[in-house]
Nucleic acid binder design. Structure first.
Length: 760
DNA sequence: GTAGTCACTATTTGA
DNA sequence: TAGTGACTAC
């Protein structure tokens, strides 16, 4: 195809290197894209360019890591290319593969309606296995085993191969978990029996599907996907790369594959991502053309310089230096607090200052931290300063109990073998099926190596239990029938009623039940929307598959809370550095810049991991467009006790030229100062401060006997609240206006620490 | 079978 | 500290 035939206007906005990366569409291409270098632009324009060059959209496969990135890409392609751009196969690895597996799964022995097990489901399965093998659950830590299994899968090590791998076996022995291989074996068998795939399976089974079916499957998809693109390639693991190769490397392949990534932003090695893939790519595709995008369009020069300085401390890296032609801008600010509380206050104050002085909106501002647990202090001070904020991370909608319960019923309706779903709701709402019955059931299922559902009719039970089980069976059967005859919304509505979940909440009739009910309604609304989307037709996304219940379940299980629609409320954003990747803000606060925290203490021993922390810091600072503030505290509460940390080594890696002069870093820790925190604080100053902030040292809880109805009290976490009632068991209902609208909490006076602020 | 209590433990990131 | 899971008492 000649460029001249193609409308050129969209290429005009690109710099030379970007344009090369966009227009080199034949053969393998590698784009190393520094932060803010227009990576997404290149990807989308490249796809647009393919389309305009006459490539049919369904021949293009673009893989990303997050739904958000995929959606953004799709939206932008449509703007640039229009037409049937939505037919491009763009999505996350997991969602694209799930989509293919829905069609092909039966060829590798799974039902096409397979369930998708989330992390909780996997853990629950593993837990049961550990128990059944009579292993000590303290030694055999569920989380550790799960990640062990996950990484085995990601490296294509099957349960059969595992015991033969000396390195793995040796590691397990050292960790006193020599039976890990056995758990792995049972885990895989159990998931298979349940007709379920976990997240890793979506990749692994995709690989198996292609690998084992060279003629009738692999060839088909090789022929279909003529142009492949992978975003954030540095985050791919071994398995993902192997799948990519199955798509691209074969006799007669044109090898039109383009990977985009930045080794300096590789921050997911803990979950199996390996930079090796980038190096490997160069040797697997010797013809590769490499383009380095080094011009940064995002940040002002002090920030760019600081980023470059920091990253040079890492030894392993693809040589590159980002640069900008933007003005120098503002130097980087460093804030130091005595305590984490003070750090929070200072950051909140600084945010106000930024807003006033530089007329920034809330949404221009983000607070980035290493661990989600750090968000609390900042929430508190933002709330006190009346700054609207939102937090990424934490419990997402689909992780709420009532939602998971509903989803479990829906899963059973589409895949009766789904043991995890069955266990979740067999006695929910309570219908008198107790531990004894469930144990019998699991034992029988395990002994016969079938799903629990298949045993339901066969276990011998006392009449009462039998009746209860019968009730459950009839609910599920009825739901299954509905699922086959009605649409997803009708089915869900039916389940909500027939299961008794809705009635249960209605009967409870308190605020919490009310909330849960609302959540269920929100879920139902969501399903309805999902169903009706179909009617709109000429839709936008490729996930416009049939609007079945199965597909709805798939969509939500692959969704994360970062996929929540970003509503247009003007709020400050609080999020972990990991979650911030790919985002940008005018003003960024990177907080908790302390040794043992950032870098995390888990990383200090291993140089590799320390490098990853540094890349993480690199990602953090390059999120900032104009203002970058780094903060730390001399002491902070961690795990319920006061800890003292040195300022982060990363702070010293930025040269003074780029840092605002007024504050210099205390290089030596000052252990002496905060030792006797709060003990001798004059009483007068306490009341003055308390309206703005709760410092632990100003918090003087009253005895539970003094708490009375009508008082205004102060709670360390929830702030001010009004005591509405106290019942006989000394449980107080307190309304905390600061939490969210009319949030009422039931607080046990025996345990809570409350300070009386006003008598009434 | 359930609710309530107690003790323990985990402390990183997330699809 | 807070969240969870096991245990105990009804």
């Amino acid at each position: 195809m000649q460029n001249t035939e193609v409308g050129k206007s969209y290429l005009d906005g690109l710099n030379d290197i970007q344009r090369m990366a966009v227009t080199t569409i034949n053969g393998p291409v590698m784009v190393i894209a520094g932060p803010g270098s227009g990576k997404t632009r290149v990807l989308t324009f490249r796809i647009a360019h393919l389309l305009k060059s006459g490539v049919p959209p369904y021949q293009i496969l673009a893989l990303t890591f997050t739904n958000k990135a995929a959606r953004e890409m799709k939206d932008r392609i449509e703007t640039v290319a229009g037409g049937d751009a939505y037919k491009v196969w763009a999505g996350t690895f997991h969602s694209i593969f799930a989509r293919i597996l829905r069609v092909e799964a039966h060829k590798i022995g799974y039902p096409n309606d397979f369930s998708i097990y989330d992390t909780d489901d996997s853990k629950s399965v593993i837990k049961e296995i550990i128990k059944s093998l009579s292993l000590d659950p303290k030694v055999y830590n569920v989380g550790a085993i799960r990640s062990r299994i996950s990484s085995a899968k990601s490296n294509l090590i099957t349960p059969k191969m595992y015991p033969g791998n000396e390195e793995l076996m040796e590691q397990d022995k050292m960790n006193r978990r020599p039976m890990t291989f056995k758990i792995y074996e049972k885990y895989v068998a159990k998931c298979k029996r349940a007709g379920a795939m976990d997240f890793d399976d979506l990749l692994l089974q995709m690989f198996r599907l292609l690998y084992q079916n060279p003629e009738n499957v692999r060839a088909k998809y090789q022929a279909q996907f003529k142009y492949l693109m992978v975003d954030e390639f540095q985050d791919t693991n071994f398995l993902q790369y192997e799948i990519l190769k199955l798509f691209v490397i074969y006799d007669g392949s044109e090898q039109n594959v383009c990977i985009v990534g930045d080794d300096a932003q590789s921050i997911y090695s803990f979950r199996g991502a390996t930079i090796e893939n980038i190096l490997q790519f160069e040797s697997d595709f010797p013809e590769v053309k490499t383009y380095k995008l080094e011009q940064n369009y995002r940040s002002t020069s002090y920030i760019v310089k600081a980023a470059n300085e920091v990253i040079t401390y890492n030894e392993k890296q693809i040589k590159k230096e980002i640069w900008t032609d933007k003005e120098e801008g503002h130097k980087i600010k460093i804030i130091k607090g005595m305590t984490d509380g003070e750090e929070g206050k200072m950051v909140a104050d600084s945010i106000i200052e930024h807003k006033n002085r530089h007329s920034l909106a809330n949404k221009d501002i983000a607070i980035l931290y290493r661990t989600n647990a750090q968000s609390r202090v900042f929430e508190e001070h933002l709330r006190r300063s009346n700054i609207a904020y939102k937090i990424y991370g934490g419990l997402s909608f689909y992780q709420r109990k009532e939602i998971k319960d509903m989803v479990a019923y829906m899963r059973l309706a589409t895949n009766y073998k789904d043991d995890e779903a069955l266990k979740r709701v067999i006695n929910y709402p309570k219908r008198g099926i107790g531990a004894t019955t469930i144990t019998k059931l699991t034992d029988l299922a395990n002994d016969n190596e079938v799903s629990m559902w298949q045993c339901l009719n066969q276990i011998e039970l006392k009449p009462r239990a039998k009746q209860s089980v019968g009730k459950f069976i009839s609910i599920v059967k009825a739901s299954q029938e509905k699922a086959q005859t009605m649409d997803a919304y009708q089915t869900a509505l039916f389940i909500a009623k027939r299961s008794g979940i809705v009635d249960g909440f209605k009967a409870e009739n308190n605020i919490e039940a009310q909330n849960r009910l609302e959540n269920i309604n929100a879920l139902l609304d969501g399903i309805q929307e999902f169903v009706e989307d179909d009617v709109l037709d000429e839709g936008e996304d490729i996930n416009k598959q049939e609007r079945t219940l199965t597909n709805f379940l798939q969509t939500i299980s692959l969704m994360t809370d970062q996929d929540k629609d970003v509503d247009n409320v003007d709020t400050v954003t609080l999020l972990s550095v990991h979650a911030a990747k790919g985002l940008e803000y005018k003003a960024v606060f990177v907080v908790g810049m302390e040794e043992n925290l950032f870098p995390s203490y888990m990383s200090l021993a291993a140089p590799d991991q320390l490098d990853e922390e540094r890349r993480l810091f690199y990602v953090a600072i390059t999120r900032a467009e104009e203002f970058l503030t780094l903060s730390y505290a001399n002491s902070r509460y961690q795990y319920g006790q006061m800890r003292f940390n040195d300022p982060s080594r990363f702070l010293e890696e930025i040269s003074d030229d780029n840092i605002e002069a007024s504050i210099s870093i205390t290089k030596k820790p000052q252990f002496g100062t905060p030792k006797i925190l709060g003990k001798f604080k004059p009483i007068g100053s306490a009341s003055k401060q308390k309206a703005l902030t709760i410092d632990p040292k100003d918090f003087k809880p009253n005895d539970k006997s003094e708490i009375k109805v009508g008082q205004t009290v102060l709670h360390m976490n929830f702030g001010h609240g009004e005591v509405l009632s106290i019942d006989a068991r000394k449980v107080a209902t307190i309304r905390f206006p600061n939490l969210h609208e009319n949030a009422e909490k039931r607080i046990m006076l025996d345990y809570a620490r409350l300070q009386i602020v006003e008598e009434n």
